[in-house]
Design a protein around this nucleic acid. Structure first.
Lengths: 148, 148
DNA sequence: GCTTGAAGCTCCAGTAGCTATAGCATTTAG
DNA sequence: CTAAATGCTATAGCTACTGGAGCTTCAAGC
């Protein structure tokens, strides 16, 4: 390896901003990068994978602490099976939960779209559905913060 | 009308925090409330509906600017429904995409748990799944902040 | 070898959408 | 009438970034 990518290359390859990479380093999601004599960060191919992983998981709605846990699975393959299992299980439950909520949401959005077939606002179901929570068959939960 | 609710009642009825109501007023999602002589905010039943609408839409993943649009649509019922429909459709696409990706992740986590409970250290392909962006036919956009 | 423009560095401020706290005023129940 | 609950403003904090100022380093062309 030792492809020695600059931070710009890394960011491009991983599909995120340079500042985001520095931010991840700062909060410990990435190890502190090696530096050139000129103090510029140097990365390897494996770092690209790591950042891609983080980005992808973020897009799927995992908060950074959860991603940290997932990364620890990859970082320490010798780790006791129990710990890995536990992390994976916890994540699995969360993923299932998230899917369930998104499916309910999808149904509701579909209904909104279906019933809003070019009428007037006065008869628009989108507005109605949004003001009437009783129309949801969805489970009750706090603001969807866990989804982002 | 003129039920003259306090902010606490309003928040309770609408299912959110008092501070959130004040915040919505501050950013103009709610009109500036009437005040009692003692300078406390006074609300009517219709305000409850408005806040419920906002909260519900937020839970469905709509960002505040989109909700602002929807509210302005609702305020003008002679307008065509198309704009509302479009906003809902966009939301729907994003939700569908997210579900697809979560299903892939779920499968992988299930595999890990399965193998792990067999007593062996699973070769961790979660990272692979999550770093492999080609699995997404996905929308390109920033982190999924729009979902919370 | 020198210059120049791109890319990198650090540090700090700002974003959305809340949430919490401090320190005070008002309202309401007993 | 007093004490507890609720409200007020202002400010700070949260997560997960994103952007800018002001400076340094690198790489290419001459």
């Amino acid at each position: 390896m030792a492809a020695n990518l600059t931070i710009g290359r890394l960011a491009e390859a991983a599909g995120c901003k340079i500042q985001t990479v520095r931010y991840y380093e700062q909060i410990g999601m990435l190890p502190r990068a090696a530096r050139s004599q000129g103090n510029q960060r140097l990365y390897e191919r494996s770092d690209v994978e790591r950042v891609r992983f983080i980005r992808h998981a973020r897009e799927l709605g995992f908060p950074l602490p959860a991603i940290r846990d997932l990364l620890s699975l990859a970082d320490d393959p010798e780790q006791s099976c129990q710990a890995a299992d536990e992390i994976a299980r916890t994540q699995l439950h969360q993923v299932e939960n998230r899917i369930a909520r998104l499916l309910a949401l999808k149904a509701e959005l579909e209904r909104m779209v279906r019933e809003c077939s070019g009428g007037r606002i006065a008869t628009c179901r989108v507005i109605e559905v949004l003001s009437n929570h009783s129309l949801c068959q969805a489970e009750r939960h706090g603001p969807a913060e866990s989804d982002p």
